[in-house]
Design a protein around this nucleic acid. Structure first.
Length: 628
DNA sequence: GCAAGGTC
């Protein structure tokens, strides 16, 4: 028997081949630079020892598109794109060669086994592989193809996956096809509509050959940026009042803060203040003293989104710069696969082995040795598992100062320190809180004493420091007030959107995936819907993403058009689509039902936008004039 | 010239 195995990417093919082949593997080049064909033998249950060829693709093999002869730009009305026929074609140059490679290998194979990632897109890629293989081997069908189910590359797990094949999940494949078709129809139709509309109405957009694109992920991303910008701009400060006291103990002054939240009613605050002043004059009583152990928790195992947020915050790298650097580190074998949603390590992971590789580092080797000598702790386990990849962690030690780019140096250091932190103990301290009563009002002061920094010794990206020790009070003690004031302040506006906040918002709202969030942000910048700006005092300048006039005009225009609560620039539509796709996978809805419903929804939105296109034009004119 | 999703 001959078995053909195909993985989603070369790294998986190589690793699985060497695991199953037990080291006895011969390698052949394919016509694609990164893709190799591995030959070995393996004993599959029921069929005995088989000769196996393992190869891979490079992600999706195909993409959907429209027939340009019939439905090209200018050859039909944009609204016709909602019921145009759709063509599936190979994407890019290499896919043709990859399909050819699979077809060649499948010709003499008795069985096909799919080794793509265990996620929705992975099922679809498996289906694309099957279609490629069927070109030369008509005995292969969706029903009889083997699907390996694996979530990491540990030896026994891979062997068990090889011996217990499942089937491809046709419902997951349906869900992906649904997403592809909707994104294509909505994206193309609205992009053509908007581009043509703005070209006819704005000379500069025509001259600069600007593209005004719409995408189901681009617009909600822009929506977040504009939304925040408007909240900052329209912010009206409000006055509030609170009581502030300072007590005296020995020769120490201790400011204490009011237990009530800030009051927005001056009279109410005044009454409370005068009440206490009448009752207690300048004396307060210590009514509660507590000292309790407290911890500062070490971070969770690292996901892609968290990596991007942190590298933006700590090193001011853009999400794309971070992912690019992580990919280079991955390709050099320094870190694990950088696109993952998993924030818990599989219990079988040999963490000690991974950790021990870092012991030779001049920067953190000493710390790591202490962990290996007994201070090592199990990482925390988060709630997310994408069933395809482990959290991002270093694979082997490398002298990061010799890495090619500064970004790679920063990302390698960060990934490694984060991993070491995960294997460390939480930071420990003691928190003291003292409560005083002045009249009828209570006030507190707190202090922190850090006892063991533990993980913070290595994960030095933020601080957790001891405060000045609180004076020693006794319960019931009367203390003199040095000050008791009714203070007024003003609420301050939120800050503009930082990239790390934007990533977090996209993640929470399901806009894009770990692999594409960075691209969507780049896209709204490339389209000049938004731009990056450095704001703040010279010493503490921070980078923010601010919308351009065009970006504001598009979002506000669409908001004004109003689409029955499903505005194109809000995240809800994407969220609903994601929910419906999940229902297809769960067999609670059919692909055709979801397609019909969303195509109709987009078509209605399109007709309304077309009918009210003057609003979009006016919105841009208005903003241009206002800022002129 | 257009989308979003994989990956190199």
């Amino acid at each position: 028997m001959k078995i053909l195995c195909v993985a989603e990417k070369p790294s998986i093919a190589k690793s699985v081949a060497y695991t199953l082949g037990g080291g006895k593997v011969t390698v052949r080049n394919s016509s694609v630079k990164y893709v190799k064909n591995y030959d070995f033998t393996f004993e599959f249950p029921g069929v005995g020892r088989c000769s196996v060829t393992m190869t891979s693709v490079l992600g999706h093999l195909t993409e959907m598109t429209i027939d340009n002869n019939r439905y090209g730009w200018g050859k039909c009305l944009p609204i016709n794109l909602f019921d145009s026929t759709i063509i599936v074609k190979e994407n890019g140059n290499d896919s043709k060669k990859l399909v050819q490679n699979i077809a060649n290998e499948a010709r003499l194979s008795n069985q096909l086994m799919i080794w793509t990632d265990c996620d929705r897109e992975g099922e679809h890629i498996g289906w694309e592989i099957l279609n490629a293989a069927s070109k030369t081997n008509s005995s292969l069908t969706l029903e009889n193809v083997w699907r390996a189910q694996f979530s990491h590359l540990e030896r026994s797990h891979i062997i068990s996956a090889a011996k217990n094949p499942k089937q491809l999940d046709r419902y997951a494949i349906d869900a992906v096809c649904t997403r592809m078709e909707l994104d294509l129809r909505a994206g193309f139709s609205f992009t053509r509509f908007l581009t043509d509309l703005f070209k006819t109405n704005f000379q500069e957009i025509k001259e600069e050959r600007r593209l005004i694109s719409y995408g189901g992920c681009q617009f909600p991303t822009l929506g977040f940026v504009v939304d925040r910008y408007m909240r900052v701009k329209e912010f009206v400060p409000e006055e509030f009042w609170y009581i502030s006291i300072e007590v005296k103990k020995g020769n120490r002054k201790l400011p204490m803060s009011w237990s009530r939240p800030h009051l927005f009613d001056r009279l109410a605050a005044m009454l409370l203040y005068e009440n206490s002043l009448d009752i207690a004059k300048d004396e307060a009583e210590i009514v509660h003293i507590i000292s309790k152990p407290t911890s500062n928790f070490k971070p969770l195992p690292l996901t892609t989104v968290q990596l991007q947020k942190d590298c933006s915050k700590f090193f001011k790298l853009s999400a794309k710069e971070t992912l690019d650097a992580a990919e280079k580190l991955y390709n050099q074998g320094f870190i694990s696969y950088p696109r993952t949603e998993t924030d818990r390590f599989d219990p079988k992971t040999d963490l000690k082995n991974l950790l021990s590789k870092q012991a030779e580092s001049p920067q953190w080797g000493g710390y790591v040795q202490e962990l290996l000598d007994g201070k090592m702790r199990s990482p925390r386990a988060g709630k997310h598992d994408d069933k395809a990849h482990p959290p991002i962690h270093p694979i082997c030690y490398t002298d990061f100062t010799k890495l090619k780019s500064r970004n790679e140096q920063l990302v390698y250091q960060y990934v490694t320190k984060r991993f070491i932190a995960c294997c460390s103990d939480d930071a420990k301290g003691v928190k003291s809180i003292v409560t005083a009563k002045w009249g009828l009002e209570t006030f507190t002061a707190s202090g922190l004493m850090v006892l063991e920094k533990n993980y913070l010794d290595i994960y030095d990206y933020f601080k957790w420091t001891s405060t000045k020790e609180l004076p020693e009070f006794t319960l019931g003690e009367k203390v003199k007030l040095l000050k008791a004031d009714l203070v007024t302040g003003k609420t301050s506006p939120p800050s503009y959107m930082s990239e790390s906040e934007l990533i977090a918002l996209m993640d929470i709202n399901g806009i894009g995936t770990d692999a594409t969030i960075a691209e969507h942000i780049e896209k709204i910048l490339a389209r000049e819907y938004a731009s990056k700006q450095s704001l703040g005092e010279s010493r503490s300048k921070k980078a923010y993403i601010l919308p351009t006039e065009l970006g504001c005009a598009l979002v506000e225009g669409f908001n004004q058009i109003g689409f029955d609560n499903l505005s194109l620039s809000k995240p809800f539509l994407r969220k609903q689509l994601e929910e419906s796709l999940a229902k297809i996978t769960a067999k609670q809805e059919t692909k055709n039902n979801v397609l019909d419903r969303f195509i109709e929804l987009y078509r209605q939105a399109f007709m309304l936008s077309n009918q009210k296109q003057a609003i979009l034009v006016k919105s841009y004119r208005h903003i241009q004039r206002r800022n002129a």
